[in-house]
Structures are given as structure tokens and as C-alpha cells.
């Protein structure tokens, strides 16, 4: 099958620091693809390059066969890549509902003058957006909190809301940056279930960064291991687990990570 996302020889430098060097991997449609690696390996940087927050120093990112390198993040979001952030970036002062709605607006295509003179088409589009947001929030179990301030939600709900907001873009590829961060093992178990539901229900392809080994190993179809900005291994969970370089660089620390 043709890959959904292709990362081709991406290098990212910050001054003298090489955060990514010649990174390449493919994400197959329908898969859950994991990226693991020790702290500072460049995982988040890879996400930032894919979503257009940084333009790579070298290399190319292709989405559905088309290059998205150098596109603005909003353009990439419109093409169908949505993401969450390692340290939650909600619109904290807005309501839960508006958080989702802002992402939903990407699909409301009414014009400027339409909005200014309140054309029926604009009103209709707004109504539809409201309906879609309500549905989405119900599905994510946030239906009772829609008028809460996002920043007031408990941590777990904030994570969930961030995923709901990303899904409001109706993406075909969802990037999750450490979704299990700060969760205990019971919560992590729930998360695996939740991610499975997400994948099946929205038939979305996933690329996820995670430190929690068990989660990655059970959930991901394919895993890329980064260290110091380089790919040191790629393959299925079993292949990666057996790779000596990975064991040395990363899995040696597994005990430290629960």
C-alpha cells in the first residue's frame, strides 16, 4: 500500500545542535506507528517538522504523495494532519466547546462578507459546526463539561479534550505526543482502550510518541527508534525489542520507566 506519510532524509539543526539527522520513515495508512527514544532524541522535533512548525534544514515530508515541506502549519492541518502537544496546549481561557469549535471551523467554508451580513449560508454553516462539535464532545465523554473553561478541567480531561480538538479537524493522520504522560498504570490501560476505539471509530492513522513501553509495544503496528536525532531501528514491536542497539540505547532504561 502507498504510504500516507513519508519522511525523507529530514535534518533539523538549531544553530550548532543537530536535533534530527537524516531521518526517514513511512507511515502506512491504517497503522498505528510509534516513535520512541530517550529524552532529547528529537521526537517532538520530528512532529514539529511534520506539522510545519519548523521548516527542516534538509529533507522532505510527503503527505499522500505530495510535499508539505515548508507549508504553514494551518495548511498542513487543512490537508489532514492533526496533532496534540507534549505539554498540553489548549486554549485555556476558552470553553471546552470553543476549543473544539475553533478546529471545527476549518471545515466551515463561508466567506467574509457572508459572515458580516449574516447570509443564510453562513448561519447554516455555523449551525452545522455547532452540531458537529456537540456530537464530537459527546463521543469523547465531555458532553457535560462543554461550558467549562478548558483550563479548569482535570488533567486527564484536558488530554482527552486536546485529542477531541485534533479530531475535530477530521484528520486522516493523527500525531500524539506522549498521550500517556502523567498517567498512572490504570489510566494508561484505559488509554490503550481509548486509542483503539479512536482508531476504529474514526479510521484514523496514528503516529505516536510514547515513553511508556508497554503501551507502544502492545498498541503500535510499527515502531521507529530515535537516538540523538538518528534512526537506530525500525520494525515491528518484536523486531525492535530484539535489536541490540535499541537495547543498549533505550530499553536498558526500561526499569527506570515503570
Amino acid at each position: 500500500m502507498k504510504p500516507l506519510l513519508e519522511v525523507r532524509g529530514v535534518t533539523m539543526r538549531f544553530g550548532g545542535l543537530v536535533a534530527l539527522s537524516d531521518l526517514s520513515f513511512d507511515v502506512t495508512p491504517g497503522h498505528a506507528h510509534g516513535i520512541i527514544g530517550p529524552n532529547g532524541a528529537g521526537k517532538t522535533t520530528a512532529f514539529n517538522v511534520i506539522t510545519g512548525i519548523y521548516a527542516p534544514t534538509q529533507g522532505d515530508v510527503l503527505f499522500r504523495g505530495e510535499s508539505v515541506t515548508g507549508c504553514r502549519p494551518s495548511t498542513i492541518a487543512h490537508r489532514g494532519i492533526a496533532r496534540t502537544f507534549q505539554n498540553i496546549r489548549l486554549f485555556r481561557d476558552l470553553t471546552v466547546f470553543d476549543n473544539v469549535r475553533i478546529a471545527c471551523d476549518a471545515h466551515a467554508r463561508y466567506s467574509w462578507p457572508g459572515a458580516m451580513i449574516q447570509l443564510p449560508s453562513a448561519r447554516q454553516a455555523e449551525k452545522e459546526t455547532i452540531g458537529r462539535c456537540t456530537d464530537l464532545l459527546e463521543k469523547f465523554g465531555l458532553g457535560n463539561e462543554i461550558h467549562e473553561r478548558a483550563g479548569d478541567l482535570p488533567y486527564g480531561s484536558q488530554r482527552r479534550l486536546e485529542i477531541a480538538r485534533a479530531m475535530a479537524l477530521q484528520p486522516s493522520l493523527l500525531l500524539l505526543d506522549e498521550p500517556a504522560a502523567g498517567m498512572n498504570s490504570a489510566e494508561t490501560l484505559n488509554l490503550v482502550e481509548f486509542l483503539g476505539w479512536l482508531r476504529d471509530h474514526f479510521s484514523v492513522t496514528m503516529l505516536l510518541i510514547e515513553h511508556h513501553m508497554q503501551l507502544v509495544m502492545t498498541f503500535c503496528d510499527r515502531i521507529t527508534v530515535l537516538d540523538f536525532g538518528k534512526t537506530i531501528a525500525e520494525g515491528t514491536a518484536d523486531e525492535v525489542r530484539k535489536n541490540p542497539e535499541v537495547i543498549e540505547a533505550y530499553l536498558g532504561q526500561e526499569d527506570g520507566h515503570e
Binding site: 504553514r72 502549519p73 492541518a77
Partner: peptide
Amino acid sequence: EDEIAANAMGVD
């Protein structure tokens, strides 16, 4: 609220 998140959520 958050320029980077806004951009990533499709806001130009």
C-alpha cells in the same frame, strides 16, 4: 490564547 496551537488547528 495560543498562537502555535491555533496554527496547528488550521487557523491561518
